[in-house]
Amino acid sequence: MTKEDRLVIGGKSLKSRLFIGTGKLPNKLLPGVIAASGTEVVTVALRRVDFRSPQENPVAYIPENVIIMPNTSGARNAEEAVKIARLAQAAGCGNWVKIEVITDQKYLLPDNEETVKATEILAKEGFVVLPYIMPDLIIARRLEEVGAAAVMPLGAPIGSNRGLRSREFLRILVEEITTIPVIVDAGIGKPSEAAAAMEMGVDAVLVNTAVATAGDPVLMAGAFAAAVKAGREGYLAGLGPSSLYASASSPLTGFLHEVSK
């Protein structure tokens, strides 16, 4: 059954449910990390793309069969995000874009309102838009309406490696956002947390810091790939219900059986 399990975004059918961020990795590690992770989608900040010296570009280290998803890091409002997306497209980075509008440099929390505005404009222009958001159902619904290709709620603040702090809200998104994928972006610090997110039913995860800051980023990329696969299969297999209470040998409702006798 898992053989046909595909993630479809913007008309692309993806086998891997692990997206990789490049912002914190030395370029020379990129090919190894991408190969070990099996990822098919890699995000690159346009602000870092060096149009003059291609050899300095992270883009130069990404294999051709991998989708490059430029992100709008540095945008402080919808207008800037739109401009960055268009620049990226003009630079030959394709039509996928991860919208990041950050108006708080201290915690790097996304500005949901501006993100909706940018998504609406870019979706209309034909971009495959994946907005990075606070895990807010109302905003996710709005994004669904205005044409987002997926929503990317955070698990915890960027770079915090704190795991699924927003678990309860992610659960609501998984439950309610059914027409587009839910991808957890930011905060996942360990493979086990990626597996936990996948078990909950999120469609994919994006990992950057946890791989980049590992002692062996390539090995960690492989560990995440395995964790994402395990979590996904756990979800598909249908996790058994868990209970805090052991079955009592004398059930409290045992009398009901007596009544029916």
Binding site: L25, P26, N27, R47, V49, D50, G74, E80, I84
Partner: peptide, 17 residues
């Protein structure tokens, strides 16, 4: 910088207007 295990970057912003 590379010998220290870091990536030297020359660009971290792109003027928009």
């Amino acid at each position: 910088i590379i010998a220290c295990g870091y990536q030297p970057v020359f660009k971290d912003w792109h003027r928009l207007w």
